[in-house]
Structure formats: structure tokens, C-alpha cells
Nucleic acid binder design. Structure first.
Lengths: 239, 239
DNA sequence: TTGCTCCTCACGTCACGTGAGGTGGC
DNA sequence: TTGCTCCTCACGTCACGTGAGGTGGC
């Protein structure tokens, strides 16, 4: 046992602010020199161990993997200084990530995280027009699926939809269709609504249809949302 | 298979910005609803899965353990809002920890991390008095050990040492003793230095000696630093 | 004697990642 | 046929923590 090797593992750990288990772990991993043992087999550490342990803790707290810490403890001063610079940059990046995480957390109770900025704008427009929550959620779900399966086409389609909302006739048809969800299947207003829809669609250049038929079905089918009046409306529009 | 369950695991993962493995992991852990399978046994997801997955990722990125994420997905809005507040506080604390880690990293190439603020001041005083680097490092190591084995006493002793440095005679003795390290063992100046040291010590109230004899040895022995002249000096002082 | 600190295995945890060996659709 | 995506195990990784079963000094 060397002259200065006097402190027990518990004292050493407390001095550096780490656990005893961590000290033993660092020794096993080769970061901390294997200490001398006293007559009871207890590890006895010296000042050099304390210094190395504080270095290890400082680097580990900075998120440096232990394998890298081991390299750094053996590095020359120039390499060490360069590494410190890199680690500091990484810490700054981590801090920025935390701020981004905070910003995203704040949006968790809105729809903003689940759809693109354009779709969010589009859904806001619908809400402004008095469209029902049910319909807006249905639209949101469709746009999520479209963006997942065909991101590029989805962007074009949502731009087209936003543009369509500029047309008063489209807005009127959209609102009426939303209302129609709860009508009776034999409501006398349905044939007229179907006619107006057909006329509006006929007057517009058709949207480029997607290659994948399952996507086409998505665009037209409004999955998950159906009602007797809507089924009737769909039938009237087909012919 | 439900109407809206159309996207593959790869699309879903890319949409949310996670790996396929993570999606399967969340499903196995019960965070994400078990999806429908298509005729090939492939998982098929819908818009609801995408929304849940983005929630999971947002919470996981915020450092929330998956077990807690699972609870939160099932929580009512009030509990959820309270949890968001807590998580945000935890994130702010993490950001503060990162700043502390950065500050400590910047001190890694000094002695400031290894000793208390008082000892750092004391060592700076010694450097200002022209004491050798060897002696300062020896002092640093002693104070590390003292603080590790007996923090409270160590604080009293370092205060006493700092006070002693106010005495010109102590400073002179200290400097001479530092120089004496490299002298020949039969240097004629040694007996005079021993006499002055003895006289100075005799004129001072003795320091309260520690109960533990191994600590007392530490204080007097300067572990690891020895030279022929110092051995002679020690012998002269003992009598 | 009691309580405290220390010892050595061996296995557990957390959030996935890696890799083997295979299938299904263009 | 080739390349791509998907499938299911089983085991690995990282930095320790937990716990069992024990010893040594006041």
C-alpha cells in the first residue's frame, strides 16, 4: 500500500459525489487505477484517485461515454483541449434539443404536432367557417394518412384544397355537406346538394389522381365517417 | 382490418421520426395499440396510431420514462396538463444541469474542481509567494485527502493555514523549507531552519489534533514527497 | 452485540439496437 | 431475379443498480 493511499471507497465516492458502485464500475472498466488493498481487503485510495474520479465524473456528467472518457484520461493536452471543445458543442446542442422538446411539449394538446403547417392552416380555416369538430377531425385523420403514404402528392392536394376554399360556392357546398351528415336519408335537400357538388367538380380541372389505388380510395372515401344521409348523397352523386 | 388502417410500419415510423424498432417496442410495451395485419402479416396503421406515436415520441424525447408515458396516454386532461407542467419543470432543471456541466468542463484543466474554494485560494496564495509547483501539488494532494477523510476538521485547518500565511516569519520559513527540498543533507543552513521552525511552532497555540492517528500522520508526513535534506530537517526538528 | 462499511458475484434495468434467418410484392 | 420492406426471435448495449450472502472494525 502506498503512502498516500488512505481513503476508503465510501469516502472517495462521497468526495467526488458518485456512488460506491460507480467507483467500482469505473475501476472494472479501466478508467480508474486499481487501488491498493488494506489488510481487510478494503480498497484504499489516494489523492490521485480522487482527482481522476472527479475528472471522470465531470466528463460522464457531460454525457461522454465511458469508453471515450478512458481515451481522454490518457490523451495529451492538445487532444484533451480539442475534445473539451467538442464536448461543449455537444452540450450546447443538447440544450437546444431540450428547448425544442419543451416547445413541442407545449403543443401536445393541440393538433399542431400531428399535421404539417399547411394542414394546420387548412384545419383552422375550416374551424373559422363553422365546420363541425367531427368533420375537422375526420379531415385531420385523412391528411395524416395522405402525408404518411404519399408526402409529395399530399402537399399538392392540400394546396388545392386551400385554394378551393377561396370559392364561395365550394364553401357553401362544404358547409352543407357537413350539415347533411345528420340529415335523414330521404331529406329533400340531398338531391339538390348532390347536383351542386357534381356541377362544381365538373367545372374544375380534375386533381391528378394518385397511382396507388388504395390512396385514391382514401381521398374519396373519408374512412371512418359515414351516415345514412352521406351514403345517400354518395349514391346520388354517382348517378 | 379497419377502414383507415392503411400505412405500413415504415411509413408510420418515418412520419413520426422514429425507427421501426421503436414502433414495435412501443407496441410490445403497450403504449401503442396493437395494429391490424394485412394478408401478408404486415402491420397496418391508421391516423390514430400516427397521433399516438407522435405523442409518445414527444414525451419520450422530453425524457419521460415509457411506463409514465403509458400512464399519461390514458390520463384525463387535467392530470395530463399537470404532468406537462411537471415535465417542463424537469426539462428546465435538465437545461440548468447542462449549463453546470459546461461550467465544470471549463474548469477541468485547472485544480478548481478537485479542491474546495478555500483550498484553491490557499494554493493560489502559495503560487503567489513563489512556492514550487512540486510543493503546491503536494499540498493539493494532502488537502484532498484531508477533505475526504475529515471534511469538517479540514476546513478548520485550512483556515488556520491561510491565517498563518499572514505572518512574515511563517512565510519565510515556508519558502526556505520549500527550497530546502533540493539541498544536500549536510547543508549548513538546515539546523538554523529547524530551529526557526521549532520556535515558530512553539509560539503558536497548537492545532487541535485529529482523533484518528492515520489522519495525524497525514498532516505531518507529506506523503509521497521526501528528500535527503527534508529527512535531515525532520530529524533535526524532532530533537 | 449492534450497526456500519466494506467485499464478491450474479442478475436486473432502461430503451431500444443488432443480427440471424426468413417471407412477400414489384 | 433483384432489391426492398416487412416478419419473428434472441441476444447485445450502456451505465450502472439491486440484492444475496458474507467479512471486519468499533
Amino acid at each position: 500500500m502506498e503512502d498516500g493511499d488512505v481513503i476508503t471507497i465510501g469516502r472517495l465516492a462521497a468526495y467526488a459525489g458518485v456512488t460506491i458502485k460507480a467507483v467500482r464500475h469505473y475501476t472494472k472498466r479501466g478508467l480508474l487505477e486499481e487501488p491498493a488493498r488494506d489488510s481487510s481487503g478494503y480498497r484504499r485510495y489516494g489523492a490521485r484517485h480522487a482527482i481522476e474520479l472527479v475528472k471522470i465524473k465531470t466528463l460522464a456528467d457531460a454525457g461522454v461515454p465511458l469508453a471515450r472518457v478512458k481515451e481522454l484520461l490518457a490523451a495529451d493536452p492538445d487532444q484533451f483541449a480539442a475534445a473539451i471543445g467538442e464536448i461543449d458543442r455537444a452540450l450546447k446542442e443538447k440544450a437546444a434539443e431540450i428547448e425544442r422538446a419543451r416547445a413541442r411539449m407545449a403543443l401536445l394538446r393541440t393538433d399542431a404536432l400531428f399535421v404539417s403547417a399547411e394542414v394546420a392552416r387548412y384545419l383552422d380555416r375550416l374551424a373559422g367557417l363553422g365546420i363541425s369538430r367531427r368533420q375537422i377531425e375526420s379531415e385531420r385523420d385523412i391528411w395524416i394518412l395522405l402525408h404518411a403514404v404519399a408526402p409529395d402528392e399530399a402537399r399538392a392536394w392540400v394546396a388545392d384544397k386551400i385554394e378551393a376554399l377561396g370559392d364561395p360556392e365550394f364553401r357553401a357546398i362544404y358547409r352543407a355537406t357537413d350539415d347533411a351528415y345528420g340529415w335523414e336519408a330521404d331529406d329533400p335537400r340531398l338531391p339538390d346538394l348532390a347536383r351542386r357538388s357534381r356541377e362544381w367538380l365538373a367545372a374544375r380541372p380534375p386533381l391528378p389522381m394518385p397511382a396507388d389505388p388504395s390512396i385514391a380510395q382514401l381521398v374519396t372515401a373519408q374512412p371512418g365517417a359515414s351516415s345514412p344521409a352521406w351514403d345517400r348523397l354518395a349514391a346520388l352523386m354517382r348517378g
